[in-house]
Amino acid sequence: MSSVKLTRMQSLKRNLANIKNGDLWYSFWRSPSAIFAMVIALVSILSAVFAPIISPYNPFDLAQVDLMDASLPPSWMAEGSENYFLGTDDQGRDLFSTILHGARLSLLVGFASVIISLVLGVGLGLISGYVGGRTDVIIMRIADVQLSFPAILIALLVDGIFRVALPKDLHDLLALYVIIVAIAISGWVQYARTVRSSVMAEKVKEYVQAGQVIGLPSFIIILRHILPNVMGPVLVIGTIHLALAIIIEATLSFLGVGLPPTTPSLGTLIRIGNEYLFSGEWWISLFPGIALVVLALSVNLLGDWLRDALNPKLR
């Protein structure tokens, strides 16, 4: 027998070649906005992750905060102080450091809620699409009802319920987790619906039937064959959902039902700044606002490019 023994190395090289020649890679380097977005997103994410190291002050350390330095404008303005590049907030915290730490919280909430949503939605979508029948009807009815309300309202409601159910001080302590759960619950429907319709399209394809003819049990067919084939759209939704989750978190915090001022996210900072808007201290809300938009925009740009790149019809 002249059978070629394949080493792992060979197969690895082939994989790499596939990726490099692949259309995704190609379209990425062809799209300036995708590269730009990737750079910005990476910079934002890295600076948020390493915020405790990069930021000049620790805004949570009360010993470093001096109320005398409250509401200083950015350093390039006449009354600005060289110590505070972007100025300070109403409590004298360095705005630049606060923004870095805030972005860290925003990203944490975003990623955590997207992952929970994704797992929940993809799981329910797979079951709904593959099993069909009554299970499908029940899951999809719930999804329909929820979908008729905007995500922000669902998140508000979930947050409201926790607020009523938990005592005030406990709620502040758990605010981070409450908001993650609230956003996660508000987002699963998109995944479930997309995965379900992809599964319905995939499961009548002959490769799934081939698995049935072999005698494979359903869960192997679902996990090994169908799941990898429906992950494309899930990836796109996940990216766009990340941007949305960051925005929802900011919105909730801005409305005063998100993260408390003691551990401010970008939205909380904007809320704080909003109260000083009319007295001329515009920087307290403007700089966190810019940070938020840059973050959301770069993630959205990535999602937009990903969607076009994964959609063969648009090429």
């Binding site: 394809k205 002959e206 490769y207 039937q209 081939a210 003819v213 072999i214 005698g215 064959h225 990898p228 084939n229």
Partner: peptide
């Protein structure tokens, strides 16, 4: 009970593009 019989009969499908899992 069915597995041994599944093994004895197999199927060749019509559409060569959808009958193979493109991710494998």
């Amino acid at each position: 009970d069915v597995a041994p019989y599944r093994r004895q009969m197999q199927m060749v499908f019509q559409d060569p593009f959808s009958s193979l899992n493109g991710r494998m």
